[in-house]
């Protein structure tokens, strides 16, 4: 919902709409300091956000650093064709889709349920303390979280000690491909769900207690009240979070996959972001890598608009775009 605040600007019918060019120029002249204030952000955005957008052209070229972006030769859709025909294309695509879709299906409801449960803790101090613990993993770095996975789930680690204690054989959690997705998704929930619940907890604070009182008098059970009062209250927030999650906007990228990736589990752990990193930075294959990334961006945008469209339909016309 943060993102919407910029898009749906307050639509006050200010007189400014009708003021002329001369007046605008006079305003700029009189308030030049304001323009100097925004200048650094605008310049940095143009250099580090818009220039790379122009740089995406290299996806259609055979980029060489010496010739530069403009000077490099055009190759059209060559890199895209090469990617689509690559033997690992399907694997990469399905790995990426599965990791994200399972992650979304499993991870998305957890913060909501968490917030609904936290909302039932009446003692403010108790609630604060629980939240304190739930938010803590958010402050641990990805490197440390993955490091903890390696330690806890190593063949001789505590989890495998339990497995052995129950008569099993030690499992290679960090190198067997089958375990990659569960490890990735569950550790993500462990780290992020508490923090993600904040926004829903805040939205639940807006529920009018009178509604609950009235419903209780009418004989509604606690579960019924959660279902029919609390849940509808946070529905708009849920809608926006779904769109953002589907568009991959909130995702910080494939940092964690890059850390968890290894040659043994790459059958499942090789996703588009790890692939882009490998061919781009380890093999310096810039054009091809940029093409793969552009493909990924386009998929994300399509997802964003599709989900936005669906959510708008079911959410009385409220989407984010």
């Amino acid at each position: 919902m943060q993102q919407t605040s910029g898009i749906t600007q307050n639509k006050r019918p200010e007189a400014r709409n009708r003021i002329g060019l001369m007046e605008k120029l006079r305003y700029i002249k009189n308030n030049y300091w304001l323009y100097l204030f925004v200048l650094p952000a605008v310049v940095l955005t143009i250099i580090f956000k818009y220039l790379p957008m122009y740089g995406v052209l290299i996806a259609f070229k055979d980029y060489s650093f010496r010739k530069g972006i403009l000077g490099s030769d055009w190759v059209g859709f060559h890199h895209f064709e090469r990617f689509f025909n690559a033997p690992n294309f399907e694997q990469l695509l399905f790995n990426t889709l599965q990791l994200n879709i399972y992650g979304l299906l499993l991870g998305f409801p957890v913060p909501i349920i968490l917030a609904l449960m936290l909302n039932q803790v009446r003692k403010a101090a108790m609630k604060k303390n629980i939240q304190l613990f739930l938010y803590a993993p958010n402050f641990i770095s990805v490197v440390v979280v993955v490091g903890m996975l390696f330690v806890l789930f190593s063949p001789t680690g505590p989890v495998n000690k339990l497995v052995v204690a129950f008569g099993g054989m030690p499992l290679s959690f960090m190198s067997e491909p089958e375990y990659f997705r569960p490890m990735y998704i569950l550790s993500g929930i462990w780290q992020g769900a508490g923090w993600a619940s904040i926004i829903y907890v805040a939205a639940l604070a807006n529920v009018d207690p009178e509604l609950h009182n009235a419903a209780t008098l009418d004989g509604a059970s606690l579960l019924q009240r959660i279902r029919h009062i609390d849940l509808p209250t946070i529905r708009p927030v849920i809608a926006i979070m779904i769109i953002l999650a589907a568009g991959g906007i909130m995702a910080g990228g494939g940092d964690k996959a890059i850390l968890m990736w290894n040659e043994m589990n790459m059958e499942k752990s090789d996703v588009i972001s790890t692939y882009v990193y490998r061919i781009g930075f380890q093999q310096a294959n810039y054009s091809f890598s940029a093409a793969v990334e552009l493909f990924n961006t386009v998929i994300n945008l399509i997802m964003l608009f599709t989900v936005n469209f669906i959510v708008k339909r079911v959410n009385d016309g409220d989407g984010i775009v």
Binding site: G6, I7, F48, P52, M53, Y54, V276, E293, N296
Partner: peptide, 21 residues
Amino acid sequence: IMTLFIITMFFGGGLIPTYLV
């Protein structure tokens, strides 16, 4: 100016072009 900023939340050149800049 706000639009200039907001667009970058939805679309970007990506890792490699940014790296090259």
